[in-house]
Amino acid sequence: MDELIDIVTDNGLKTGETVLKSVAHRDGIFHQTVHIWFYTKNHQILLQQRGKDKNTFPLLFDVSVAGHIHAGEAVEVAALREIEEEIGLLVSKKDLKKIGVFKSIQNHHSELIDAEFHHTFIAELKAPLQELIKQESEVEDLQLTSLIKFSEETWGMANSKKYVPHSATYYKTVIKAIKKEL
């Protein structure tokens, strides 16, 4: 779905201009997204397997929930909206803990360049996995995996054919933040 998003500078500051998401991706224009990583008290992390029809990284495992921030939309509002859309879960702002903003540029091909700032949160998953309702158009599967296994597979990208290739710094920050909460 194409939507209007805010343009940001290469330092993440809003310019006051908007653009269609498709144009931002085509032209490599910086914009904002939200990433929400869910964890459980028994040291598991919720992974989303990306839909098979996604333009980027189909069927790879990624952040629990992610999406674009609409033009003029508050970051936390976008996070809550994406959580409800992608996994059918209602949470409140107080459940989200922001752990950072990460600049990411992925050159997929000449007409698809993701130039994004990921506003990244962690949140405790309090609902059982079987109660989550995945958004069929976006999500192939949802699964819980141990934080230890996830750490081993992502820190050095030992299993790079399984996960979306975020930077090692990004994955380490997520894992450390979750460990701190446990």
Results as ranks from 00 to 15, higher is better:
Q135M: 09
I36G: 05
Q106C: 05
D10I: 10
H166K: 13
S167F: 00
V139E: 06
D141R: 09
T33P: 00
V63T: 15
E73L: 03
F117I: 11
D114C: 06
I29T: 13
H43A: 13
H119I: 08
K179E: 12
Q32E: 15
K161Y: 01
F121H: 07
V63E: 13
G51R: 03
F121A: 06
T56H: 09
G100I: 10
H109F: 09
I7D: 03
H109S: 09
L182R: 08
H31L: 07
I69P: 01
L47T: 01
V75F: 02
P128R: 04
T15V: 14
G156W: 05
L125M: 11
G51Y: 00
A71I: 04
I113M: 10
L125Q: 02
Q48I: 01
E131F: 13
H118S: 08
D2P: 14
D141G: 09
K94D: 15
E152V: 05
H68D: 14
I133T: 14
H166Q: 09
V101E: 12
K98C: 11
V63N: 01
A115D: 07
N11W: 06
E82C: 09
E86A: 10
D2Q: 12
S110Q: 14
L129N: 04
I87G: 01
K162V: 13
R81L: 08
P128N: 12
E86R: 08
F121C: 08
Y170P: 00
Y163V: 01
K94T: 15
F117N: 03
